[in-house]
Design a protein around this nucleic acid. Structure first.
Length: 426
RNA sequence: GGGGAGAUACCCAAGCGGUCAAAGGGGACGGACUGUAAAUCCGUUGCCACUGGCUUCGCAGGUUCGAAUCCUGCUCUCCCCA
């Protein structure tokens, strides 16, 4: 179908401008030409698009992997569109099978509610509460909890919802196919999940839904359900999934390969520095606004080739900056250089004080000390750490696991490269 | 409903009466080399004491001088047939 009317050139330019911004980092956009059309229609009518993004509060932390789609949502807001943030209060109890080769544990209602609160606070580090639309009207982000409609759902309605999907379509999904091949179990409840997520789109009348590439199936179900309900089917935009610090697996809290949105500046900076080089272009694309233009990509490649370390530090600094501000980011970078480049830990080691009562003669066994500071999880581990030359006292390797550490003066204790503290007794 | 296979440490996986705290790989951690990158090499990888004890091989019992290994029951999973 062709555009039915002659298009205002200014409007067409604005649509192109918005599309250019919105398509960055996007893998699939179903149906892309429909997006252009809807943008034009919305702009012409001075009404914002309704853009939906949902998260299940399955743990209490969001990380920069979540931030990829949150940033996309923010871009929509910045362009004058309306964000709808769905807290998956009901769906979290189910567990999304997407991208999982295992059944997720189901959560209780209490756990979910506890998580949802901190989730929102963290999300607002990236998206904004206040919105301003193309026609100048002010508004604010719409936060909805799908527990509000699902926990009340009548059984008959639930069955009706289930009837809208077939088993054949369900098991087309590669992660289900894979699990079947491996003989791994698949719970019936996992089949229900995409239907619920799709129903959310019907409830909020979404124009666009965002998600990771692993979400495409769920997003598409939303289109079907909307069409079934007589709504125009939403545009589904999927973003590249951010690999975690290990460079292989998707970033996730349970794998421990993540950078949390609540991490302190030093930790954000440090974690980003430990990202494998090969991933840097992807991190730049998904998490920064640097090197946007096409020649920018060339200059990124050049920068990486000539000085990978400094380039990475720049990326680390800008990610730290949007979570903690420019100043904190600059300081984190400085401390990082001092600790890891100049290997001088003494300025930046935090102070750890032990109560005098626990250190009777001003001395403490080195193994106990490491456990006390939680530098080691058990005495055996502490002992191994010492025996493996992993512990330094005042900059000198301490390889004797029987050593009694004299704590009458403050001591600079280091375990491995990253754990260190000034230890004193008071 | 019938028949078959299986459950081993963070994960995969060997072991099928003693020499098993349990091979091998992955991961993780520490060390060397570095840029808290990659690659490589070395070491460690149940807990507590220190060359001894305790707990661990789905869960509960039993046989045995002795079990991850044999028997019984239970729980869970997968496959084939209906």
């Amino acid at each position: 179908m062709k555009e039915p009317t002659a298009v205002d050139p200014a409007l067409a330019r604005e649509v192109q401008r918005q599309l250019a911004i919105l398509m960055r980092g996007v893998v699939d956009c179903v149906a892309a030409d429909d997006l252009a059309r809807r943008l034009a229609a919305a702009l012409a009518a001075g009404r914002p698009l309704r853009v939906k993004l949902g998260f299940d509060p399955t743990s209490s932390d969001l990380h920069v992997g979540h931030a990829v789609v949150l940033r996309k949502l923010r871009q929509f807001q910045d362009l004058g569109h309306h964000a709808i943030f769905i807290v998956g209060g009901a769906t979290a109890m189910l567990g999304d099978p997407s991208g999982k080769d295992k059944t997720r544990p189901t959560l209780t209602r209490e756990q979910v509610e506890r998580n949802a609160q901190s989730y929102l606070e963290q999300a607002f580090k990236v998206v904004r509460r206040e919105e301003r639309y193309a026609d100048g009207r002010a508004g604010e982000i719409e936060v909805r909890n799908n527990a509000d409609w699902f926990l009340e759902l009548r059984f008959a309605d639930f069955i009706r919802l289930c009837s809208k999907m077939t088993v054949a379509r369900m098991i087309e999904r590669d992660n289900f196919t894979k699990r079947m091949k491996e003989g791994a179990p698949i719970g019936i409840h996992e089949f229900v999940y995409p239907l619920l997520q799709g129903q959310d789109s019907v409830e909020v009348k979404a124009d666009v839904e965002l998600g990771g590439t692993d979400q495409l199936f769920n997003l598409l179900v939303g289109r079907d359900l909307q069409a079934d309900a007589g709504q125009p089917p939403q545009i589904c935009m999927t973003m590249k999934v951010l690999p975690g610090l290990d460079g292989v697996q998707k970033m996730s809290k349970s794998l421990g390969n993540y950078v949390g949105l609540t991490f302190p500046p030093d930790e954000v900076f440090g974690k980003v520095m430990s990202v494998p080089d090969a991933l840097i272009p992807l991190w730049v694309e998904l998490l920064t606004d640097r090197f946007v233009a096409e020649q920018g990509e060339a200059s990124l490649a050049a920068a990486l080739a000539s000085n990978p370390r400094e380039t990475k530090a720049g990326v680390a600094e800008s990610i730290t900056a949007w979570l903690h501000g420019e100043q904190a980011a600059g300081e984190a970078r400085m401390r990082f250089d001092r600790v890891f480049k100049e290997k001088d830990v003494s300025h930046d080691a935090p102070e750890r004080v032990l109560p005098r009562a626990e250190v009777p003669e001003g001395k403490l066994w080195i193994v106990d000390l490491l456990c006390r500071l939680e530098f080691a999880a058990s005495r055996s581990e502490a002992r191994r750490l010492v025996q493996g030359n992993g512990v330094k006292l005042n900059g000198v390797v301490a390889a004797d696991d029987k050593l009694e550490v004299d704590l009458r003066e403050p001591v600079l204790l280091q375990a491995g490269k990253r754990r260190f503290a000034w230890v004193s007794v008071r």
